[in-house]
């Protein structure tokens, strides 16, 4: 009888509570982290360029030295610089000339597009976004983060902010597979104010958010610490290590500028919080925001035009 009662009690509990959300979340959390482990490593050239550009004191010559050892990259850079966009009177035949025309940011963008473009360009089913939306958002964030950094040049290296902006949302490409159509549940939670923002919704549903997933991937890839921290804390910059907060806040603002400009990544829309403490690290007055958005718009259009010329 005792046994029957035990079994009966168990059956009743499972009927009333058909699933245990916490257990499911933990399982998904582990599955997401296992998926991160299955992502192939970065190419040597990409890893070296990212390592280099994360250092505030690097020069364009350092970037050239890495690119010189990558024949495919060199060929692509020469093809782009000789495209009609640049209107050179004489074709550029040397890598040095190509890179000095294109600039470091475009080189980094091309390297990343070549190596991790398959993650950046795929449609994000879990965010209801189309192919290319994530890459455009990342590029727009990168340009905006750099513009913010340029206003604070004495304390924030602009090129580091740019590269951080390109990489900040890489976790979405993995988390998307686990969210699938379940984004409706996050939107419902936001509408009921059960979660404070979209990353809170991801954590509630899956047990992990896209920033943490991206951080785990960045660690796996051995990206420089500053990139790892930008990716991990771009929605919660106040939690970043003190010496890296300035650049993390620059990407935080860059991300917001991209979303305000209509370049989000889908269902998450603008459901993220501005961390007001950015004013402790960066000077960006509300009046400067309009000029920033205008400048980002113009530079983004130029970059997209150039990158499509290949």
């Amino acid at each position: 009888m005792a046994c029957f009662q035990f079994c009966y009690a168990a059956a009743t509990a499972s009927t009333i509570y058909p699933r245990c959300p916490d257990m499911e979340k933990k399982t998904l959390d582990k599955e997401v982290l296992a998926a991160v482990q299955r992502i192939p490593l970065l190419s040597l050239a990409a890893a070296r360029i990212l390592e280099l550009t994360a250092r505030a004191d690097h020069t364009l010559t350092d970037v050239m030295d890495v690119a010189r050892n990558d024949a495919a990259l060199t060929a692509r850079l020469l093809k782009i610089v000789n495209s009609p966009v640049y209107g050179l009177l004489e074709p550029a035949t040397s890598l040095e000339r190509a890179i000095s025309y294109l600039g470091e940011n475009l080189v980094v963008s091309l390297v990343l597009e070549d190596t991790i473009g398959s993650y950046m360009n795929k449609p994000l089913q879990g965010y209801g976004s189309a192919s290319g939306d994530l890459w455009k958002h990342d590029l727009r964030t990168a340009i905006a983060a750099k513009e913010v950094a340029l206003l604070n040049r004495d304390r924030c290296p602009p090129d580091v902010a740019f590269t951080g902006g390109l990489l900040h949302d890489i976790g979405k490409s993995i988390l998307s597979e686990f969210l699938k159509e379940r984004y409706q549940e996050i939107l419902a939670e936001l509408a009921r104010k059960e979660v404070k923002d979209y990353v809170g919704g991801e954590r509630e549903l899956i047990g992990i958010d896209h920033a943490r997933v991206g951080y785990e991937l960045a660690r796996n890839w051995g990206l420089p610490e500053v990139m790892q921290m930008v990716i991990r804390y771009h929605h919660e910059p106040s939690l970043a290590p003190e010496d890296l907060k300035t650049v993390v806040y620059a990407v935080h603002l860059g991300d917001i500028i991209a979303m305000m400009g209509g370049y989000g990544t889908g269902t998450d829309n603008l459901f993220y919080r501005l961390d007001q403490r950015y004013t402790d690290y960066l000077v960006v007055g509300p009046d400067q925001m309009g000029m920033l958005m205008l400048s980002v718009e113009e530079k983004f259009n130029e970059t997209v035009e150039t990158m499509q010329m290949h």
């Binding site: 917001i256 979303m259 305000m260 919080r273 501005l274 007001q276 925001m289």
Partner: peptide, 14 residues
């Protein structure tokens, strides 16, 4: 005219 979640409306361009 959408905006980011910010109770102070700092960047209220919308």
């Amino acid at each position: 005219g959408a905006q980011i979640m910010d109770q102070n409306n700092t960047f209220n361009i919308g």
